[in-house]
Design a protein around this nucleic acid. Structure first.
Length: 684
DNA sequence: GTACGTCGCACGTTA
DNA sequence: TGCGACGTAC
């Protein structure tokens, strides 16, 4: 069986897959069969008798984890193994670890994971002077470089940074007090525990004898340190990555990890995978040209294995509406020719660019799915429900309680919540206990008579629901709705219909979960969804739209990349890193298998105004602007065309003369003739 | 003290 | 366009 497995690999892939002991660095170019290689290695290790439970594979995204799981498991004889190998995201691994070992830090295991939105709220409530986004990213940086609040305060020289470090300290205190854990903590806390408890570190390292890491170029300092501890007793670490695809610098990823891997881990074997099986030669050629403009790289050139293929198209449009029209026309033609929607995707650097596409697709009646973007569990109505359910499983959860104490509106405002919170700090008791233990009169002395009554009713409802939940998991959702009318609170409000749809879907999901897992409880469900971020739709009949970041690791036969304008792609502005932008360009182009179309516009509506834009330098750097390309001509105007003007409305062109890039048009607007430049009208 | 309406401004990528 | 800040009416 093991020989069979390896026979599907080329020589380099094979030498990587059959490497067993010691550190291994696989430098894998885009489309070089990276996933195939490490999933085969996983299956190979099992096939030669290594205990599956001793193999740990870490990825960055759930998508990558599930794809690998699927591919690896299809190669493994399932019946022959007891425990499947652990294959999950870094964060999921951290979560699993913390569930067992949180007590090492003197904290309870019923902690709650907060998301980015929660984090922002907490930080904003601590400090309103400094921009929240700066605070969020600086705090994240501290954590990812293992700096404690005390160290951050001591090390801060600038006044601004002293203040930021203080916010960091208060934020940490808040998390601790409410037993909250942010995304960074899912890695940081396990590290702290392992660092503190050497014996435990040895045990864990012994447990996972073989560790593999996907997308190693995107690891940060903290992940590196954690990995060191995990493989301290064996050095069996196999990482796969591509320095040219490092696109998470802003999240603390340091390309140094992959560049210095051989120095970090003694006796490293290096395997390079440079043969690309994905894209046509034309696509690879332009991708290579682009990335060659970067200086900071190990240096590697993708070699094609496919035919030359069609040339890359570049669309030039006046604005986003024209861009959308062209793309939709192309996509319709593709679909008409029998191509499946799942083989078509549109990428953009900035999520906001999806709006005009979505409008266009809706009008044209084309199915699309927006990958990434607003996640299902990030929707306010879903987060509310999760908060409610968390209180049912743990009424000490002040954080969740505050979120829903006034939902649906019951007259409990900010002032009342502040008073309750102050009392909670003073008495060292959770808010819920205060409401429960204080008599109505005592409570009224703090928040007034009316609020006291409201809070008592709320408390009683929660207690009732708790009882119902213990009695019957299947009944409690109906009881919850009977009590709070949460779903009905979205009747006749804007977006209400859509939100109710989400609520129904969520309820359905919970019921299904209990049906599938009769022995599990609500708290298990809540734990499980904490790190899920997929937006749930798996519609093969839909065209995908996503950010380039979200497209990492994916491939599409027919690909469109829009927004190739300076300022959008590359994104400039402060903190921008042109080399990382270029790597993003490289990632984007190398997602394409057969057909690639790039598009830029002269103007875009963004941040409330229309901006005039220059075409992206990446077009010339990749050799697309001069040479073998087909530049799509700007729309022609001729006599008889119907056009639309923002002020004058619809009119018919009577005369059109070329004037530079534009046309000078004489247009008849309902009897009034006007001379207008073509850039001010749209064809209709 | 809370709810609700209006205005003005922002939209960089993610576990 | 969607959200938060702010002011005002109850």
């Amino acid at each position: 069986m093991s020989e069979n497995l390896l026979s599907l690999l080329n020589d380099s892939q094979k030498s990587a897959a059959e490497h067993i002991d010691g550190s291994l660095l696989i430098l894998a170019g885009a489309g070089s069969g990276k996933t195939k290689t490490i999933t085969t290695r996983l299956a190979y290790l099992i096939s030669i008798g290594i205990d599956p439970a001793s193999i740990l594979t870490l990825t960055f995204t759930n998508k990558a984890a599930s794809e690998m799981r699927e591919r690896a498991f299809s190669m493994i004889d399932q019946a022959s193994i007891n425990t499947p190998p652990l294959l999950c995201t870094f964060h999921k691994f951290g979560l699993l670890f913390l569930k067992f070992h949180m007590s090492e830090l003197g904290r309870k295991g019923n902690f709650i994971i907060i998301d980015t939105d929660d984090k922002k709220r907490i930080i904003k409530s601590i400090d309103k002077e400094i921009t929240t986004s700066l605070l969020v990213s600086e705090i994240s940086k501290y954590k990812n470089t293992l700096m404690s609040p005390a160290e951050a305060i001591a090390g801060a020289e600038l006044k601004l940074y002293q203040q930021i470090a203080l916010v960091y300290q208060k934020y940490q205190e808040y998390l601790l007090k409410n037993n909250l854990v942010d995304f960074d903590d899912l890695l940081l806390l396990p590290y702290e525990i392992l660092k503190k408890n050497e014996k435990l570190a040895q045990q864990v390292s012994q447990k996972y004898q073989y560790i593999m890491v996907d997308e190693y170029q995107d690891t940060n300092e903290l992940q590196y340190r954690l990995l060191r501890l995990l493989c301290a007793t064996h050095n069996n670490l196999c990482v796969v990555g591509d320095d040219d695809q490092s696109i998470y610098g802003w999240r603390g990823a340091t390309i140094k990890n992959i560049l210095n891997f051989s120095e970090h881990f003694e006796g490293t074997k290096v395997v390079k995978l440079e043969e690309n099986y994905r894209s046509t030669d034309t696509i690879l050629n332009h991708a290579n040209q682009l990335i060659e403009h970067n200086r900071d790289r190990l240096g590697k050139k993708l070699v094609g294995t496919r035919a030359k293929g069609d040339s890359i198209k570049v669309y030039e449009s006046h604005d986003e509406n024209e861009e959308t029209r062209k793309i939709i026309d192309d996509i319709k033609a593709l679909l008409d020719s029998g191509i499946s929607a799942k083989d078509v995707a549109i990428l953009f650097r900035v999520n906001a660019l999806s709006r005009s596409l979505e409008e266009g697709f809706n009008k044209a009646g084309l199915n699309y799915k927006l990958v990434g973007g607003m996640k299902f569990y990030e929707r306010a109505e879903i987060k509310d429900l999760i908060a409610f359910f968390r209180i049912l499983t743990n009424s000490n959860d002040n954080f969740s309680l505050k979120r829903v104490i006034n939902k649906p509106k019951r007259g409990i405002g900010k002032t009342t919540i502040d008073k309750l919170e102050a009392k909670s700090i003073q008495t060292q008791k959770p808010i819920f206990d205060l409401i429960q233990e204080f008599s109505a009169d005592e409570l009224a002395a703090i928040v007034g008579k009316k609020n006291s009554r409201t809070l008592k009713v709320f408390e009683a409802s929660i207690m009732d629901l708790k009882d119902i939940l213990t009695e019957s998991k299947m009944k409690f959702l109906d009881a919850f709705e009977d009590t709070f009318d949460y779903r009905a609170s979205y009747d006749n409000v804007p977006d209400g219909f859509e939100r109710q749809g989400n609520i129904d879907e969520f309820y359905g999901y919970i019921r299904d979960y209990f049906m599938q897992n009769p022995h599990l409880e609500l708290k298990d469900f809540l734990n499980e969804i904490a790190l899920e971020s997929e937006n749930g739709e798996y519609n093969n009949e839909a065209i995908s739209m996503m950010s380039i970041h979200a497209s990492k690791g994916l491939e599409f036969k027919n690909l469109f990349i829009i927004g190739l304008e300076e300022g959008f792609f590359p994104l400039t502005g402060d903190g921008a890193d042109i080399e990382e932008e270029r790597r993003l360009g490289y990632v984007a182009i190398t997602r394409a298998m057969d057909n690639l179309t790039l598009s830029f516009v002269h103007s875009r509506f963004y941040k409330g105004k229309r901006a005039i834009l220059q075409k992206s330098r990446f077009l010339s750097e990749s050799g697309l602007i001069k040479g073998s390309l087909t530049i799509e001509k700007q729309s022609n105007f001729k006599k008889g065309d119907l056009v639309q003007h923002k002020i004058f409305g619809m009119g018919r062109v009577q005369k059109a003369t070329k004037a530079g890039k534009d046309y000078k048009l004489t247009i008849n607007f309902g009897g009034t003739k006007r001379d207008i430049l073509s850039s001010f009208v749209e064809k209709s």
